[in-house]
C-alpha cells in the first residue's frame, strides 16, 4: 500500500551520461531549477556503460526508481551507446516484470546537454510517478526496515 504520499520521499538512482544529462543537470543547477532531492546522480561516461546488472543492483540495494539518461537518439557521443542502453533497459524491464517490480520504476530518457528544463521535468515526473507507486516492493518485502 502506498504510504502517505507526502511522507514518502523516493530514492532514485539517475545514471547520467557525462556528455549529456550530467551537464544538463549542472545547468539546471546554474539556473536554480529545483527538483526532488531524492534523485542521486551517478556519473557514467556513456549510458552504454550502464549494465543491466547495475540497474538490478540499484533496485536490490533499495532504489525506488532508476533513471538512465542518455544522449539524444542519433547523437550519442559514442555513436551507439544510447542504443545499447535502450536495449538493455528493455531486457531488464522484462526481468523486473518477472520479479514483480513495476516497470514504471525504470525509465530511459534521451536528452541533450543543453536541455536543463527537460532534465528537471524528467526527474520530477519520475519522482511523482514513484510517489504514486509508493516505496519499492523490494524494500517493502524486508521485514523490520
Amino acid at each position: 500500500m502506498p504510504e502517505d504520499k507526502n511522507r514518502f520521499s523516493p530514492k532514485i538512482a539517475a545514471f547520467c551520461c557525462f556528455h549529456s544529462a550530467y551537464l544538463a543537470a549542472d545547468s539546471a543547477g546554474a539556473m536554480r531549477k529545483s527538483y526532488s532531492d531524492g534523485v542521486y546522480i551517478i556519473r557514467v561516461p556513456c549510458a552504454g556503460k550502464v549494465e543491466g546488472l547495475h540497474i538490478l543492483q540499484a533496485f536490490e540495494k533499495g532504489a525506488d526508481g532508476v533513471l538512465i539518461l542518455a544522449c539524444p537518439q542519433e547523437s550519442c557521443h559514442y555513436i551507439s551507446g544510447n542504443i545499447r542502453a535502450k536495449k538493455r533497459v528493455d531486457y531488464i524491464l522484462r526481468f523486473l516484470e518477472e520479479i514483480g517490480i513495476e516497470p514504471e520504476r525504470l525509465k530511459l530518457f534521451n536528452l541533450a546537454s543543453n536541455q536543463a528544463p527537460r532534465f528537471v521535468q524528467v526527474v520530477n515526473e519520475m519522482a511523482e510517478r514513484i510517489k504514486d507507486l509508493g516505496p519499492s516492493p523490494i524494500k517493502a518485502g524486508v521485514i523490520g526496515r
Binding site: L56, E60, F95, G100, I101, I143
Partner: peptide
C-alpha cells in the same frame, strides 16, 4: 555476468515475496 544478473533477480523476487 549472467550469474550475477540472475542471482540479483532471484534475491529480489524472494525478498519481495518475503
Amino acid at each position: 555476468k549472467e550469474v550475477a544478473t540472475l542471482s540479483s533477480a532471484l534475491r529480489m523476487a524472494a525478498k519481495k515475496d518475503g
